[in-house]
């Protein structure tokens, strides 16, 4: 069934409104803004190409998050493994999060968190990004990840414990 021009326009505008969240999600998965933007661009192209598969009334954000994650798994994992480490642009990633705190301490802590996130698996980062960064409920995250709520809970608990341990370890090394 062909979509009307009006529906098409609404779909695209909803996608535009979602872009900041999609970029944040992709950034938390990749840790690199330019790479995140490439991922979001590819996901938008895929969504627009396959929009017939999107059921009206269902949640566009979940669909887009799932596309981004699948793209990351399918297309960029091998590339990122081979890619030399590119130091992240702190100013860009952290934005104004540094303002209003003791700068050095905050910077070290944020660096530690970003570095720890990089060491987690894609699945761990995905569940953290959905629940702890995007603020989804366990149920919403489960629907996005297409897994049972119990799986989300166990993955999330595991990912948070790993993240906490890595950040603590990093802090211990720098102190």
């Amino acid at each position: 069934m062909k979509r009307s021009a009006g529906e098409e326009r609404v779909f695209r505008e909803e996608l535009v409104a979602l872009l900041p969240r999609l970029r944040r999600f992709a950034l938390s998965l990749t840790g690199d803004m330019a790479e995140a933007d490439d991922l979001v661009q590819a996901a938008c192209e895929k969504a627009l190409s396959q929009r017939k598969q999107f059921r009206a009334g269902s949640r566009l954000d979940r669909w887009m998050f799932a596309i981004i994650h699948h793209l990351l798994i399918d297309e960029t994992r091998s590339m990122r493994k081979k890619k030399p480490h590119v130091p992240f642009d702190e100013g860009r990633i952290f934005g104004r999060a540094i303002n209003g705190m003791k700068k050095l301490e905050a910077k070290l802590q944020l660096q530690g968190v970003v570095a720890a996130m990089r060491r987690l698996s894609d699945a761990d980062r995905q569940v953290l990004a959905l629940v702890c960064i995007d603020g989804m409920s366990y149920k919403e995250a489960a629907k996005t990840m297409q897994v049972p709520v119990g799986t989300v809970m166990s993955r999330l608990a595991r990912a948070r414990k790993k993240l906490y341990a890595l950040v603590r370890q990093d802090r211990g090394n720098t102190e």
Partner: peptide
């Protein structure tokens, strides 16, 4: 603490 750790770290695209 894991929630507060991640708070704001990746928020640049939102601003």
């Amino acid at each position: 603490q894991t929630v507060s750790m991640l708070e704001g770290v990746y928020d640049a695209p939102m601003r």
